[in-house]
């Protein structure tokens, strides 16, 4: 897609270059192959996310005011929002997993939003990062399901209220859908973020032609607005699905 656009219009489009890793110190490039511990732009922007979370949740709540300050109020709003989601979706006994779920939500939310800054890097656009989240949730939920319920966890796949001859078929379908969960879970997030960022770059590329540049810039602004929605909605969707999966592990009978 990059290549076709490049040759057909004669414009330079690099909509995917924004996803390249580059070292913080030294030169990178398309063939940059970092060590796992190398300090890259991904490291920097994830660190900025962590710093943002620290500022909002630790620094802003320092005063412990009864009447909250602005930052404290935002932190409490997010706290209450995710707390309620965990209680409503995963059940009241899921409260001990609330910090884990809030961790996921905040990581995705902050990474998505900092990724919307121009020149920044969006870690959640990389399937490798979202797979850590998606498969992390999958493995955690599966292990938890077996630890808490033992063999009864397999009841998730064996529909006792279905006719007997249908049960094996349903079990196969359920099993497949269960193992597809982490894949869809992580691709949904990465795909949404990546697509939006790429479309912005494509619109920005069209701004090179003077005649259509006003439309291109309007397009960038419009897509940017949608991306702000997507940044929040995808964090929400990822979190609520995590709660749903967690509910399956806690109460496989339902």
């Amino acid at each position: 897609m990059e290549e076709t656009a490049h040759e057909a219009v004669g414009l330079t489009f690099h909509p995917l270059d924004q996803f390249q890793l580059s070292p913080l110190f030294g030169a990178g490039g398309a063939d940059y192959n970092p060590w796992f511990f190398s300090l890259t732009n991904a490291t920097l922007w994830m660190a900025i996310s962590v710093l943002g979370i620290f500022l909002l949740f630790v620094t802003a709540t320092r005063s412990r005011s009864i009447i909250p300050t602005r930052g404290q109020s935002v932190a409490e709003l997010i706290y209450g929002f995710i707390r309620k989601m965990v209680d409503d979706v995963a059940g009241h006994d899921a409260g001990r997993f609330f910090p884990l779920i809030l961790t996921l939500f905040l990581f995705i939310l902050f990474t998505n939003f900092f990724g919307l800054l121009p020149m920044s890097f969006t870690a959640t656009s990389h399937i490798a990062v979202t797979a850590v989240l998606g498969f992390g949730v999958f493995i955690f939920v599966t292990v938890l399901g077996f630890v808490l319920n033992g063999k009864k966890f397999l009841g998730l796949f064996w529909m006792t209220d279905a006719p007997l001859f249908l049960r094996p078929i349903i079990a196969v379908i359920e099993l497949i859908s269960y193992f597809v969960r982490p894949v869809s879970h992580s691709i949904r997030l990465a795909g949404n973020v990546m697509a939006g960022h790429t479309v912005i770059k494509v619109f920005a590329g069209f701004a090179q032609v003077a005649a259509i540049s006003p439309f291109a810039i309007l397009g960038v602004a419009a897509i940017y607005g949608i991306e702000i929605l997507v940044a929040a909605i995808q964090a929400y969707v990822f979190t609520i699905l995590t709660c749903v999966y967690l509910k399956d592990a806690l109460h496989p009978g339902h």
Binding site: L21, P34, W35, F36, F37, S38, T40, A42, T43, M46, A47, S49, V50, T103, L104, F107, A123, H126, A128, V129, A131, V132, L133, G136
Partner: peptide, 11 residues
């Protein structure tokens, strides 16, 4: 490896 490592550290 780089992305996974730093994502895990961040989490």
């Amino acid at each position: 490896d780089n992305l996974i490592f730093w994502a895990v550290i961040a989490l």
